[in-house]
Simulated assay, not measured.
Amino acid sequence: MTQTATVVPTPAAGPNPAAGQPGSALGVGLCLLSAVAFGLAAVFAKQCFAAGFSVSSMLAGRFGIAALVFWLIVAIRRPAMPGPRLLLTCLALGGVGYAVQAACYFSALTRIDASLVGQILYVYPAVVVVLGLALRRESASRRKFAALGCSLSGLALLLGYAGSNGPVAPAGVLLAFCSALTYALYITVANGLPEDFDVYLLAALVCSSAAISVGFFGLTTGSLQAPALPSGWLWLALLALISSVISIGCFLGGLRLVGASTAAILSCLEPVVTAASAIVVFSERVNAGQVVGAAVVLAAVVILRPTAVARPAAAEAS
Rank of each mutant, 00 (worst) to 15 (best):
R137C: 06
R137Q: 15
E138G: 06
E138Y: 05
S139M: 12
S139L: 12
S139E: 12
A140K: 10
A140E: 09
A140P: 03
A140G: 10
S141T: 00
R142C: 04
R142E: 02
R142L: 13
R142V: 06
R143E: 14
R143Y: 05
R143G: 11
K144Y: 04
K144P: 03
F145W: 15
A146T: 15
A146I: 14
A147I: 03
A147N: 10
A147R: 10
A147D: 07
L148C: 09
L148K: 09
C150A: 14
C150F: 14
S151E: 12
S151N: 14
L152S: 09
L152D: 07
L152F: 12
S153D: 00
S153F: 12
G154F: 09
L155Q: 07
L155A: 12
A156E: 00
A156N: 00
L157R: 06
L157G: 02
L158A: 10
L158N: 12
L159R: 02
L159M: 13
G160W: 03
G160K: 06
G160Q: 06
G160L: 03
Y161H: 11
A162F: 04
A162S: 13
A162E: 00
A162D: 03
G163E: 02
S164H: 10
N165Y: 00
N165I: 05
G166I: 02
G166L: 05
P167E: 11
P167M: 06
P167T: 07
P167W: 05
V168T: 11
V168Q: 01
V168G: 08
A169V: 08
A169E: 15
A169Y: 00
P170M: 01
P170V: 04
P170C: 00
P170Q: 02
P170D: 04
A171C: 01
G172M: 01
G172Q: 03
V173T: 13
L174W: 12
L174I: 14
L175T: 01
A176P: 09
F177C: 12
F177Q: 01
C178Q: 05
C178G: 14
C178V: 07
S179L: 04
S179F: 03
S179R: 06
A180K: 10
A180H: 08
A180D: 07
A180M: 08
A180E: 05
L181N: 02
T182Y: 01
A184K: 13
A184F: 11
